[in-house]
Structure formats: structure tokens, C-alpha cells
């Protein structure tokens, strides 16, 4: 077996990884939302460095998956979008981290 391949237990963990969260932009969005209570669209865009369209597209997907709640409000007659992680999203991200940590720990040393 090549040295860069995890052991059998690690390989099984690798297959169990939540591929939806594993996408880098979505992982970044969920990670930041995990650390804060809620944020508006502009703050999340600045924090992640994603473009308006890209962030909007990923947010729609994570909202459909039930991982975030998006609340559209009006402030001074301007549309204002507040985003927060749902309990389901929080649990999913925690499980993803634990799985990733197990996979990385199972990787053989150089």
C-alpha cells in the first residue's frame, strides 16, 4: 500500500465524509457562521472573500440543505439579508470536523 493512503479504518472514514460540506466555499461559509451568531450578507462576503454571485449561489444550496436560515429584512427601505447557522448545520459541521480529524489522524506519517 502506498504510504500516502490512510489505513483501512481511515479509508472507511474518508468515504463517510459529508461531501456537501467538503466543498471549500461551503465549508468556509459554514465555519464562519459556526463562530458567530448571525451576520448579514455583506459581512459574510467580506469574511469569506467570495464574490456576490458565488456567495449567493452557495447560500441558496446550504439553505436548501437546511444548514442555514436566511432572513430577508428591510432596513431604511433597503433589503437586508441576515444569515445564521441552524442546529442541523451546527451538528453537521461538528460531525464533519470529527470525521476529518479522524481521517487526518489515520494518515501515515512521512
Amino acid at each position: 500500500m502506498p504510504s500516502s493512503v490512510p489505513n483501512q479504518e481511515g479509508s472507511q472514514e474518508l468515504l463517510d465524509i459529508d461531501r456537501f460540506i467538503h466543498e471549500p466555499a461551503r465549508l468556509m461559509i459554514l465555519t464562519y457562521l459556526y463562530t458567530i451568531e448571525s451576520a448579514d450578507f455583506v459581512f459574510l462576503m467580506r469574511l469569506t472573500g467570495l464574490t456576490w454571485g458565488n456567495l449567493s449561489s452557495h447560500l441558496s444550496k446550504v439553505e436548501q440543505a437546511g444548514y442555514v436560515e436566511i432572513e430577508k429584512q428591510f432596513a431604511n427601505k433597503k433589503p437586508h439579508t441576515m444569515i445564521r447557522l441552524t442546529q442541523q448545520g451546527r451538528v453537521a459541521l461538528r460531525a464533519y470536523r470529527q470525521t476529518m480529524q479522524r481521517v487526518l489522524n489515520a494518515l501515515p506519517d512521512e
Binding site: T35, I36, E37, S38, A39, F41, V42, F43, M45, R46
Partner: peptide
Amino acid sequence: VPRIGIAKMH
């Protein structure tokens, strides 16, 4: 606020 938006911390 118009440039970086708003957020609430835990």
C-alpha cells in the same frame, strides 16, 4: 457598516 456589514457574536 455599509462596507463590511453587520454581525452578532456568540
